[in-house]
Design a binder for these strands. Structure first.
Length: 343
DNA sequence: AATCACCCCAACCGCAGAGCT
DNA sequence: CAGCTCTGCGGTTGGGGTGAT
C-alpha cells in the first residue's frame, strides 16, 4: 500500500521534471537501457523514484514519441476502439504508434468535457474535427427517434446506472469502424465472452442501455434481490425488444435512407467529400472518395451498418450478458459485411 | 493591466497482477 | 504457497497557460 519502497526515500523529488533531470534520464537510458526501473534513479543520478522515471520516459522522453494534435484518423481510431474496449487506454494506445495511454486518456477526457458542455448549451457550432465528422444522417436519425426521450443521461438524479459504464453521458459517436480494423473483431468476441455483471445494487433504478440507444429503466424493488430473476426478465424483455427493433430498423432503413442520402448530398456536397478532406495523406483516399461520391446510396447503407455495428457493440459491452453468443455472432456477421471505405 | 475562469496535460496515486524467493 | 517487489494501468489532481472580462 501507499508508496513503493523506492518512493519512500525522503530525498525523492516530485513535481515537474527539469531539463537537467530529463537530460540525465535520457543519457542513462540511451546508454544503459532500462532493465530495472527501481535502479534507474540511483544509477542515473536522479533524486526521483523509479516509477516517476519510468513514467517520464514512457510518456515524454522516449524517442519514438509522437507529439502534437491528434489527426482525424487517430481520432476515429480512438473513438472506435473506445466503443469496443472502453477505458483501456493502454490497449488503445497500442493501436496508435507513438501515442501514450496518458495522452489518449487526457484527450478523451477533455473531449468528453467538450461534449458535455456542448450538450448542455443549445447553440450548435461544430468546432472540432470530430464534430465535423458526425454524419448528417445521424442527426436526422437522432432527432426523429425515441432516443430523444429515453436517452441515458436524462435519468433521475437519485438513480444509479448499473450497467451503463460504456454509455456515458456523452452522445455516442456514431462513426463507422474505419482504419486498422484488423483484429478488432476478435477483441469484440473476447470482450463479449468475458462479460461480467456488475454487483447487484438493491433499491435503485437500473438504467440499462439496449440496442438502438434505448435505456430501459427497471425499478429494482420490483425485482427483489434476485439477480437471476432480473436476468430472466431482461432476457424476455430483450427478446421482445430485439424483435421490435429489427422491424424498426428495416422500416427506418427503407423509409429514411433515401432522404438521408439526399440530405447528405445537399448539405455536405456528399459526406465522403468531408471524409476525403479529413484524410489527406492516407493512401488511396482520393480513389475511394471519388467512388463513394459517385455512389452516395451505397455509402449511406454502409454507414447504416456501421451504426448498427456500433450499437451492437455498445449493448454488449454495456453488460448484456443475456445476449451472449447471439450478440457475438451478430457482431461478427455485421463486422464482416461492413466494408470500410478507408480500407 | 489585473483578475478570474477555464482548460490542458504532466505527474502522482492506488491498485492489480506477474514474477521471484 | 505465502510474502514481497516490481511493473503497468487507470483514475485523479493540480499547476501553468490562455482567453475573457
Amino acid at each position: 500500500m501507499g508508496h513503493h519502497s523506492c518512493c519512500n526515500q525522503q530525498k525523492v523529488k516530485r513535481g515537474l521534471w527539469s531539463p537537467e533531470e530529463d537530460e540525465k534520464l535520457v543519457r542513462y537510458i540511451t546508454s544503459n537501457g532500462y532493465g530495472c526501473w527501481s535502479e534507474v534513479p540511483e544509477k542515473a543520478g536522479l533524486q526521483r523514484c523509479g516509477k516517476s522515471c519510468r513514467l517520464r520516459w514512457i510518456n515524454y522522453l522516449r524517442p519514438d514519441i509522437r507529439r502534437g494534435r491528434f489527426t482525424s484518423e487517430e481520432e476515429k481510431i480512438i473513438i472506435n476502439l473506445h466503443a469496443v474496449v472502453g477505458n483501456r487506454w493502454a490497449h488503445i494506445a497500442s493501436h496508435l504508434p507513438g501515442r501514450t495511454d496518458n495522452e489518449i486518456k487526457n484527450y478523451w477526457n477533455s473531449w468528453i468535457k467538450k461534449k458535455i458542455r456542448k450538450s448542455a448549451s443549445p447553440s450548435k457550432t461544430p468546432s472540432s474535427t470530430i464534430d465535423n465528422l458526425q454524419p448528417t444522417y445521424v442527426d436526422n436519425f437522432h432527432h426523429t427517434s425515441v432516443m430523444e426521450q429515453l436517452e441515458y443521461p436524462k435519468q433521475e438524479p437519485s438513480s444509479k446506472p448499473v450497467f451503463a459504464k460504456e454509455f456515458s453521458s456523452v452522445s455516442p459517436p456514431f462513426l463507422p469502424l474505419t482504419g486498422p480494423i484488423e483484429g478488432i473483431r476478435d477483441e469484440i468476441d473476447h470482450e463479449i465472452s468475458g462479460l461480467n455483471l456488475e454487483p447487484w445494487q438493491p433499491n435503485c433504478d437500473l438504467h440499462v442501455p439496449s440496442s438502438f440507444g434505448f435505456t430501459s429503466v427497471i425499478d429494482s424493488s420490483y425485482l427483489g434481490n434476485s439477480v437471476e430473476r432480473w436476468e430472466e426478465m431482461e432476457r424476455e424483455n430483450l427478446g421482445n425488444m430485439r424483435e421490435n427493433m429489427e422491424s424498426m430498423r428495416e422500416n427506418m432503413m427503407r423509409e429514411n435512407l433515401e432522404s438521408i442520402r439526399e440530405n447528405m448530398m445537399r448539405e455536405n456536397g456528399g459526406f465522403m467529400g468531408v471524409q476525403v478532406q479529413e484524410c489527406n495523406g492516407v493512401e488511396g483516399d482520393e480513389r475511394v472518395g471519388r467512388e463513394c461520391m459517385e455512389s452516395g446510396w451505397v455509402e449511406a447503407q454502409q454507414y447504416h451498418q456501421g451504426l448498427m455495428l456500433w450499437d451492437q457493440l455498445t449493448t454488449g459491452l454495456g453488460g448484456y450478458a443475456a445476449l451472449g453468443p447471439q450478440l457475438s455472432g451478430n457482431v461478427d456477421a455485421l463486422a464482416g459485411s461492413y466494408q470500410s471505405p478507408f480500407l
